[in-house]
């Protein structure tokens, strides 16, 4: 299958290793990855902060860039949710953008949805000999409703020791500009999340969203907790021949 990669602005700029892992993983599974270079950002930051006009412009760009794609992979749960859940709210009902966004939305997937639902695979032949705990992320859990998809993928990874995370459904406190505007509450939430992560004894925290991982990881690193934060794609791309580095 030919899959259009929407890398997302955060991954593009700060986490290219996640993008490279996605490319490696999908090619290993025999699929073609294309990267429409006109892409930039889904507009989530602007939308969530109350800047609708700017968000609309970015939505137009996204929809035009990916209009022809058979399947769009967004390796960020919240960006996939932005397109599916919030684009309809950004568009005037019945407008051209509204129709185009509605038409495109069902083809936009998070990584676990793409693998499990579209490509029909739960064992991707990965090898990752580490103790891992998984944070479901709010948008993955409540907007995309990923349910057990990421766990099914992780359970089939060879060598993995998967630990259950206490309070996993609770927000890490990132919330985009929330982390800056309400830094104290955000930090308190991150501290509790970090405590729960540390309590699992895991050496790796995994999620489908690097922005949440940036937040929890930034907290864990400040504490010198020795827990690595790794996107699901990187675990699934890891093999015995080419193991992921922490």
């Amino acid at each position: 299958m030919r899959i259009a990669l929407f890398i997302t602005c955060v991954n593009d700029t700060l986490y290219p290793r996640t993008g490279r892992a996605v490319v490696r993983l999908l090619r290993r599974l025999g699929h073609e990855v294309v990267f429409p270079e006109a892409q930039t950002c889904c507009g989530q930051l602007h939308y969530n902060t109350g800047y609708r006009r700017e968000a609309q412009k970015l939505a137009v760009r996204f929809v035009e860039t990916f209009a022809d794609a058979d399947a769009v992979l967004a390796p960020s749960g919240s960006c996939a949710a932005m397109v599916r859940d919030n684009y309809p709210r950004l568009c005037a009902p019945g407008s051209r953008l509204d129709r185009a966004a509605a038409e495109l939305a069902p083809r936009v997937h998070d990584l676990s949805e793409l693998l499990v639902d579209v490509l029909g695979v739960t064992d991707v032949g990965a090898y990752f000999p580490h103790t891992v705990t998984y944070h479901p992320t709010c948008h993955g859990l409540r907007l995309l409703k990923l349910r057990d998809r990421p766990y099914r993928l992780l359970r089939n990874v060879r060598g993995i020791d998967l630990r259950e995370l206490e309070g996993s459904a609770e927000c890490c406190g990132f919330g985009g500009t929330f982390a800056m505007k309400n830094a104290d509450v955000s930090a308190a939430m991150a501290a509790d999340k970090a405590r729960n992560v540390a309590a699992t004894g895991a050496e790796v925290l995994c999620a489908v969203d690097n922005s949440c991982l940036m937040h929890i990881g930034g907290t864990l690193r400040r504490q010198r907790a020795g827990v690595a934060t790794v996107h699901l794609a990187e675990i699934l791309a890891s093999t015995e021949q080419e193991p992921a580095r922490l």
Binding site: D12, L14, T219
Partner: peptide
């Protein structure tokens, strides 16, 4: 507001699009 309690991520040598 961020760095008081959290480390910032390392900026990579190149972006994904540059690598691509």
């Amino acid at each position: 507001a961020w760095t008081d309690t959290r480390d910032i991520p390392e900026i990579p040598e190149e972006s994904f699009r540059a690598w691509w």
